[in-house]
Nucleic acid binder design. Structure first.
Length: 191
DNA sequence: CGTGTTTGACCAGCGC
DNA sequence: GCGCTGGTCAAACACG
């Protein structure tokens, strides 16, 4: 889960909208992890989505969680009604960002494939898929029900390719502006 | 003309 | 079994 460890390294893309860099607003990732569901709403099961998200194995300690850990079967259904038991897609990572823009460029190319309005939220939920071929990573972006200034982004699956900006980074390390070097080499915790 | 978005329909799971 | 709800598909559309 590279996003959680060092999201700064994904910031090598400078093609954001210029002044409005959503990531630069807040960088405390620990607040974005909605690991434990602390809403104990009794009587109303309105937080069914956040509970299911929290009760999943979204942040397990190892980055290689697809093989060793407690994988529950993640059923991905095909159009034909066939259920596949895909273990590769079983990581789920959700975080919460204070941003006006809900589209955050994290270095990957996403294609929107759906939009739904959830029950207890006035805000719709957007569904994205990684546009690289063979990469079935999905992403779901919605605004917080309570604070509409927060954006909840849920990644599901792992990319089977590098980020395009990382490729660019590996090819041309000299053209990095002098602001990136301190951020890019902060963590090295991906074995 | 290729690529991405929009948007309604469709489908599966779940609760009643 | 039925209806609600969340997730996905895909045709139409927009944009470079």
């Amino acid at each position: 889960m590279d996003y959680l460890e060092n999201p700064n390294s994904n910031l090598c893309n400078t093609n954001l909208t210029g002044n409005s860099d959503p990531w630069s607003l807040d960088f405390e990732l620990s607040e974005y992890l909605m690991l434990q569901d602390h809403h104990h709403h009794h009587g109303v099961d309105q937080d069914s989505t956040s509970q299911s998200m929290a009760s999943s194995e979204q942040v397990m300690g190892g980055s290689s969680g697809s093989t060793g850990a407690t994988l529950r079967n993640n059923n991905i259904r095909c159009k034909d009604g066939v259920k596949k038991n895909k273990m590769e897609a079983s990581h789920r990572v959700a975080f919460r960002t204070k941003s006006e823009l809900e589209v955050m460029d994290d270095g990957f190319k996403w294609r929107k494939y759906g939009k739904k309005s959830v029950k207890n939220s006035p805000n719709p939920r957007n569904y994205y898929k990684c546009s690289s071929g063979g990469c079935n990573v999905k992403k779901r972006v919605e605004r917080d029900r309570d604070d509409s200034s927060y954006v909840i982004t849920t990644y599901e699956g792992t990319h089977n390719h590098e980020s395009p900006c990382m490729v660019y980074y590996n090819q041309m390390p000299y053209t990095i502006p002098n602001g990136w070097t301190s951020q890019a080499s902060s963590h090295s915790s991906t074995p």
